[in-house]
Design a protein around this nucleic acid. Structure first.
Lengths: 249, 249
DNA sequence: CACGGATATTAACCTGTGTCAGCACGTTTC
DNA sequence: GAAACGTGCTGACACAGGTTAATATCCGTG
């Protein structure tokens, strides 16, 4: 089902089978989108939200010179702009990074879902607050870590999130990002990201090639990036794909 | 009423009088707290949330060396840790910066409020998402602005928020923060904040003294910090305290 | 296979911010 | 009124990361 990955392995809010069926039924359309296309523009009124099924999406804010700061990336299973449901208008743009498949959920359907099942409504709220918790981790990353720490922290986070989605084995995962993307995430220049990645490769911390990330020793990388996955609210009491408990602890 | 400032002047979600009465009734306790005291610790289970009535609160994440990164500050009217209602456990600490007065709302009361009035529940959700929007603006600030830009952006934001709360006239407001606090907000050292503040004073951009901030020309300061208040979701169609429309536009 | 465009890489140089060290001032405490 | 402390302030120096510019590599396309 399209909603299979939504809130999977999240502490205390996994969907019950009937909830999942109900949510699935609220999807009115599934689209595939090319890489580097804008999905939602800041300031435009929205009557639906977007569940990411496949691919990577980003949320970003442009500065005056056209440089952008990414404020979030999304992996399959994320309800990307669910916060547009209460807010109606977004303060930032949403775009694809890779080719992506998305499911459209009209806000009118969400009204009905929440009226029928308040508990599911609470879980939807929860999912928007995890995004906020991730924002805070990104603030810590930008405010307190040096360049290599930032890259390390981001890669640890992405590894943990993709692991939850079943798209990483804890040591390697596909990630269609360029070094310039990494720079826009970490508040650096692409040139400095390049320097840092070379250093990390030499140090054996990780190998980043646009299409593939390899992490020989996740704990070492986590230490370098001061990464503590508590903010992802991953439920480690459930049976998780192989390496997750080690990689995120 | 204690809830007077909650969601005041927020676009589309101002509380109806009966909603305000209902929320007010859910407050079980009001406390005053000294400056620099921890209110909520990361990782502890919570059964209530905190509405800020008076004073300034902060939310922060510590790094390994004990340096902290503030991830939010809160002004009177903010439902500081409402996100603890769905999340139950916070990923960060909450502390007072100045002396503060807070109202305690048990989560069991919120259950009842939301069951009775789903629309009010939606508004509570909305208020947590404004916090997330502010997080995103902070990410932009840290990722894309230089030191003076960061300080300027923060002061513009705080001016706009205090204006909504009726605690600024658009040009001056009291703010009990030290230069070190500013540093922890802007991801800088206190020494560099000091340099920047001196420069801003000389340039006539703003005068910052721990207890008072003066902004001769809010538009000029906003330009320096690339501040666009859209993310605060302030309703500019309502009658606002004097200068607000000018100061935030 | 040649081409063009995006991405990655490297070098040389520059600058914004951090670090270290010290002093000044106001407030509290005794 | 002296001591102790928090906060503000300043100068000298170091360095992480930005800037500019040029080249290399990859990949899709005709």
């Amino acid at each position: 089902m399209f909603t299979d990955r939504f809130l999977r392995y999240k502490r205390g809010v996994s969907l019950f089978p009937d909830e999942r069926v109900r949510l699935e039924a609220s999807i009115t359309e599934v689209q595939t989108i090319e890489p580097r296309k804008i999905v939602v523009r800041a300031g435009h009124e929205l009557d639906h939200s977007t569940l990411l099924i496949e691919g990577i999406l980003s949320r970003y804010i442009d500065d005056r010179q056209g440089l952008r700061q990414l404020v979030a990336i999304h992996v399959p299973g994320d309800f990307v702009d669910l916060h547009a449901y209460p807010l109606k208008v977004l303060d930032h743009d949403v775009a694809t990074m890779t080719a992506a498949t998305i499911a459209i959920v009209p806000h009118s359907e969400l009204d009905a879902v929440i009226a029928e099942r308040p508990q599911l409504g609470r879980k939807l709220w929860f999912s928007t607050l995890i995004d906020a918790a991730i924002h805070r981790a990104w603030l810590f990353r930008l405010g307190r870590l040096d360049a290599m720490g930032r890259v390390a922290h981001f890669l640890c986070e992405t590894n943990a999130r993709l692991l939850s989605a079943g798209l990483s084995d804890g040591h390697r995962f596909a990630l269609g990002l360029t070094q310039t993307d990494l720079a826009e995430i970490c508040g650096l220049t692409n040139i400095h990201v390049n320097r840092v990645l070379r250093q990390m490769r030499e140090d054996g911390l990780c190998v980043f090639r646009s299409s593939l990330v390899e992490i020989p020793d996740p704990e070492r990388l986590a230490a370098r990036g001061q990464f503590d996955p508590a903010y992802l609210y991953i439920d480690d009491t459930q049976a998780l794909p192989s390496a997750i408990t080690k990689a995120v602890s």
